[in-house]
Design a protein around this nucleic acid. Structure first.
Lengths: 106, 106
DNA sequence: AACTTAATAAGTTATTAATTATATTACACA
DNA sequence: TGTGTAATATAATTAATAACTTATTAAGTT
């Protein structure tokens, strides 16, 4: 039996850490971070993301899939376009905070 | 000539993104995140970190080196021991914010 | 049918992580 | 002083993941 199984507090902490690191890892790739910055609190089509980020459509699609699978982004299909947005308020807040910390406030 | 070279704003944004993703990537490994949580705003010896995290001394040392090399942690040697701490206020703030977002406030 | 938009698959290369073994540094104390 | 030991770092290897490219598929439009 491991320690966490005996102590709900520790268990929770470990789970929080696993969850956080999964999310952070998903966000910590330059292209994916750029995607998140482009999205902000808007809903944007894959097209527009491809045009703004500057890599292949296939590559963008794969990065979007990673962000979607990890619960960072949500998507909506309309006709033959797909629109992505930041999935929840918490993540949006985290992105805002990261911008505060990392972007020079010129 | 690339676009960024012509437009200082874009350049800055790209640099911010690179810098942010390097830092986030360094922080987004479960063991490294755990190390950061253990540190908080304290200064802690490698010993104590090893005891609390639960992996080999060598593995901890390598993770500490990654955090140090990326500027997340600073270290101080005292006699036989090495003490680590979070390097700057910004990073400390970021860690605090991540805890707010990811840790249930039971 | 041809075209647009997006996703997926397969293959290759690059990066990261963990393990094991060894080196380095500082101390303790006979 | 020399030897053992504790604390930390480094090196080398292997294993696992992640990223990018190219080609193809699928679905929706015109």
């Amino acid at each position: 039996m491991n320690i966490a199984a005996m102590n709900p507090e520790l268990m929770t902490q470990e789970e929080d850490i696993e969850r956080a690191s999964r999310s952070l890892k998903a966000m910590s790739h330059p292209l994916r971070l750029k995607i998140l910055c482009i999205l902000g609190d808007r809903e944007v089509s894959v097209q527009e993301i491809v045009d703004n980020v500057g890599t292949s459509q296939s590559n963008i699609s794969q990065h979007l899939a990673i962000l979607r699978d990890k619960g960072i982004l949500a998507s909506r299909k309309d006709a033959n376009r797909v629109y992505y947005r930041v999935g929840d308020a918490r993540t949006l807040r985290l992105i805002g905070m990261m911008q505060e910390v990392f972007c020079r406030s010129s």
